[in-house]
Design a protein around this nucleic acid. Structure first.
Lengths: 341, 341
DNA sequence: TTGTAGGCGTTATCAG
DNA sequence: CTGATAACGCCTACAA
């Protein structure tokens, strides 16, 4: 059909006036005759006129595009953060481009290249688990594009950050297990160069130390990913130990559920034989048998705050020099997979 | 830092040549001296030159933006479709803008407006459950922007479609329940103006009729949404019926899991007292106790094919007049929440 | 109150 | 082999 979009010049010609008058009329410029305004606005509506954003971008050197880099979008965790971001951005003139790295550093670099190419105005990023170098992010920063890092920290990158106190979450979980009488507590961790994995491990270790429980090497196994299938082998090794643990603290809910599944297959009773606590509070988690104890994180708020901070750089005066570092607290939710205190 | 982006003219000036020569050199135009090419390309790299996409869009009347409209992104179902789409699009020059409607028609209309404003080149859409009018989609179509509808049909809109044989999936599930000896089979459905809900209901009804099982009004309850919480009340009503059903076929896994949860709370044994089958095969579903029987759908393929069809319109010759309608088959996966045959 | 001209960055056409 | 020019759609001084 009508392939060619209606332009300001089309309207001008039909009305026998100049394009600039049309432009001004459309913007309600005070120095335009009322009748002219009316005529222009009427015709614009009739012809279904929309201003060409590309022309405006070119003029204003601003694309109104915000890039989001995340590890993946299929987990409830990250998709909820995105929802939080979108719910803020939807009220603005910006649009977001979401690009998942699939936990690959190479993909991440390619995404950044693409973002530079299309000219994003701002970047929200949660780095991949395999990201060790940050040259690509610095390249963005050097171009004057504001960055906000969320959930997973990116050490060495001096930008705004919205994180969660993973250390404290883990500490709470493990101290609870200790108080409930567990003596030998194991940990299924995540990829170690991830700040979140590291801090949860640290919380686990400190909880043991504080309570004078010796740390046992064989009680700590790091999964290579965060999916159910990544948790099966680690769970089996732990459950088959001669000195079997009486509790498992997993770095996220999927791994915890895998552990629960394996424990049940071996006919262990949960939480009597073994307590299990996860991390993230996925929506399914309370529907398992037994319902999974876990750490809740304010995912939606993380998304919203990250977006708000980025917008403040984009919209606000350029003179906000201080780099912000916001840390959300997480919350222990005790259900049936851990013993009562 | 260096706020202003490097342009072709910057390079031209430094090299004392014209912008057009720079442009040609950058594109490896045959009619350019090797030394000039080298000099230009070297300087371009040194200065970190990137072509301005907005200028190109303006010139070519093409934004290279693809819009995606989906009900929500937090379910594994839709986020997997998106992943399928992205995995195709990532190899092209296009970028996607994902906008969730949150099942609201008003949001959907607003998103379409925004898409027209920013000038998307193509649209992938799975309509909201409250969408009855399709004027907004027709507006897109009239502008010559190709549309592919996926998963949920949009009756009346004559565009390419990538759907799933929901009817057949439901038929398979219910016929299995019948063969396994269930006599009174209930259905927890979804919002009825959704093609998927309707077709699954039809499959349920036809399975009963084919097997001469009378359809009972009180065995069919429609949930208002697709989340766990939407399934609780419907499940309770069914389970509290004097003439309690011995099987429940739910329109998706979340509702099925809610039903399982409620049944367990009432101390029914699954599948002995009551069989349960869901739809979608969410990743968690096999980890529940008992593991949930369900219908698997090729979500990832739905996303990929939809993207491919859209691209064929965008890239290919404009002369592909036939409207495609692709229907994927779904597959019954029997686990432990239903009796053996 | 309105029109003209120039420019945002790039490419295609035409000319040399 | 290379340069000047116009055009994509819009806005804003400046001029009238």
């Amino acid at each position: 059909m009508s392939k060619r979009r209606v332009t300001i010049t089309d309207i001008a010609e039909k009305l026998n006036i100049s394009a600039s008058t049309v432009s001004r009329a459309l913007h309600n410029h005070p120095a335009i005759k009322k009748e002219t305004k009316k005529a222009v606005q009427k015709l614009a509506k009739k012809l279904n006129y929309y201003p060409n954003q590309q022309a405006l971008s070119l003029l204003h050197k601003k694309t109104n595009l915000i890039g989001i880099i995340i590890p993946e979008i299929t987990s409830h965790f990250f998709s909820s953060i995105i929802t939080g971001i979108q719910d803020i951005i939807v009220d603005t003139d910006y649009n977001v481009i979401i690009s998942p790295t699939d936990e690959s550093y190479e993909n991440e670099v390619a995404i950044v290249e693409n973002f530079i190419k299309i000219g994003i105005d701002g970047l929200l990023v949660s780095p991949s688990s395999s990201t060790k170098k940050i040259k690509h992010f610095k390249k963005i920063k050097k171009r004057g594009i504001p960055i906000v890092v969320f959930d997973r920290d990116c050490p060495g990158l001096k930008v705004d950050k919205v994180l969660v106190d993973d250390y404290d979450g883990a500490l709470q979980a493990v101290e609870y297990l200790i108080k409930s009488g567990c003596k030998s507590i194991a940990h299924i961790g995540g990829p170690l160069n991830l700040s979140t994995s590291k801090h949860r491990l640290d919380g686990y270790l400190d909880a043991l130390r504080k309570n004078n429980i010796p740390v046992k090497e064989e009680y700590i196994i790091h999964a290579t990913g965060f999916l159910h299938e990544d948790g099966i082998l680690p769970s089996r090794s732990l459950l088959n130990l001669k000195d079997r643990p009486d509790a498992i603290f997993a770095v996220n809910d999927c791994l915890a559920i895998a552990a629960m599944h394996e424990a049940k297959k071996l006919n262990f009773s949960i939480p009597n034989d073994i307590s299990i606590i996860g991390f993230d509070d996925e929506p399914h988690s309370s529907y398992f048998t037994p319902a999974l104890s876990t750490i809740w994180q304010p995912v939606y708020s993380i998304g919203m705050l990250s977006a708000r901070i980025l917008l403040s750089h984009l919209e606000g005066s350029e003179n906000a020099p201080k780099i912000r570092r916001e840390i959300f607290k997480s919350e222990l939710i005790i259900r049936a997979s851990s013993r009562n205190i």
